[in-house]
Computed example of a mutant assay.
Amino acid sequence: MAELRGIVSKRSTQTYIVAVGLMVMGLALTTLCFAAWFQGVEPRWSVILFGLLGVYMVFLGVDEGWLSGLEVTPRCLRLQSFGRWQEYPLEGLEAADGLRDILAGGLQLVLIGKEREALKVPLRRYRNAGQLAQALLDAAWLHNPDLVVMPRLARRLGTPPFGVMAARKGSRKPQWPLI
């Protein structure tokens, strides 16, 4: 039996600009702290603390630009961070909402389930964020046709099925390429 494959995130130019910006700021902060250490700035723990913050910013930039990703399949949501994939099953989701992300102002989906904590899915860094959001809502709708899409998100995207993971309403032919 043919199974649907997933939609994979595509990084945008903005993703790389934000990542390089984080890395440059982290390197600048670490360099300033290194110079302050040799100039004898007191207390020493503050210099170490801010130096470690700079190193963390460099690692965050590398993750943001090259090691993170997202994949939506009909069965689960897969998030990649620092090169490791985590799977989140889509069964049991009851509602979905959309928020503005404070980093870069993009879309952030919030998936709400009865028996688990709300899952926040940042879509700010992806060129195909709209298609990913529609695929995620379609996949959740396949598991729960009574999925509640909050008005704020419904105004922005509409209501499932969108035709990305599930056939559109009134269409008998699947809109997804089968493999």
Rank of each mutant, 00 (worst) to 15 (best):
G69V: 00
S68H: 00
R75Q: 15
D63P: 05
L60F: 10
L79A: 11
T73S: 12
G65F: 08
F82T: 01
E64Y: 04
G69K: 02
L60N: 09
V62L: 15
E64A: 03
L70D: 10
G83C: 01
Y56P: 10
G69A: 04
Y56D: 15
W66T: 12
Y56Q: 15
F82H: 12
L67M: 13
G83I: 01
F59G: 06
C76R: 15
F82E: 01
L60A: 14
S68L: 00
F82M: 06
M57P: 02
G65R: 02
R78S: 14
V58H: 08
L77P: 09
F59M: 05
L60C: 08
V55L: 13
D63I: 02
L70Q: 07
V72G: 11
G61W: 02
G65T: 03
L70N: 04
S81Q: 12
V58C: 06
Q80P: 04
C76Y: 13
S68A: 00
R75C: 08
G69P: 00
L60E: 12
D63A: 06
M57D: 05
S68N: 04
V72S: 10
P74T: 05
R84H: 12
Y56W: 14
D63M: 03
S68Y: 02
G65W: 04
G61A: 03
Y56A: 15
Q80C: 02
W66A: 11
E71I: 10
P74R: 04
V58Y: 08
M57L: 13
L60R: 04
L77Q: 05
D63H: 06
Y56E: 15
G65H: 01
F59I: 09
S81N: 11
R75H: 12
R75F: 11
L67Q: 11
L70R: 05
E64N: 07
M57Q: 10
F82Q: 06
G65L: 01
G61P: 02
M57R: 06
F59K: 03
T73C: 04
P74N: 05
R84V: 13
R78D: 06
L79Q: 12
F59E: 04
S68D: 01
G69R: 03
Y56K: 13
D63N: 15
R75W: 11
L77D: 10
E64K: 01
L77Y: 09
F82L: 05
G61Q: 03
G65C: 03
T73Q: 08
C76V: 14
C76G: 03
E71N: 10
G83E: 02
D63Q: 09
Q80I: 01
V72E: 12
D63G: 03
R84I: 12
F82N: 05
M57I: 05
T73L: 09
L67Y: 08
F59R: 06
R84D: 09
V58N: 09
F82G: 02
W66V: 05
L70Y: 06
E64R: 01
R84Y: 11
R75Y: 11
R78T: 13
E64Q: 03
E64I: 02
R84M: 12
R84S: 10
E71Q: 14
M57A: 13
S68E: 00
V58W: 03
P74A: 06
L67H: 07
G83S: 07
V62S: 14
E64S: 02
R78W: 11
L77F: 08
L70F: 04
C76E: 15
V62Y: 15
D63E: 05
V55M: 09
L79E: 14
L79F: 07
G83T: 01
C76D: 14
L67N: 05
C76H: 14
F59W: 10
G65D: 08
V62M: 15
L67E: 09
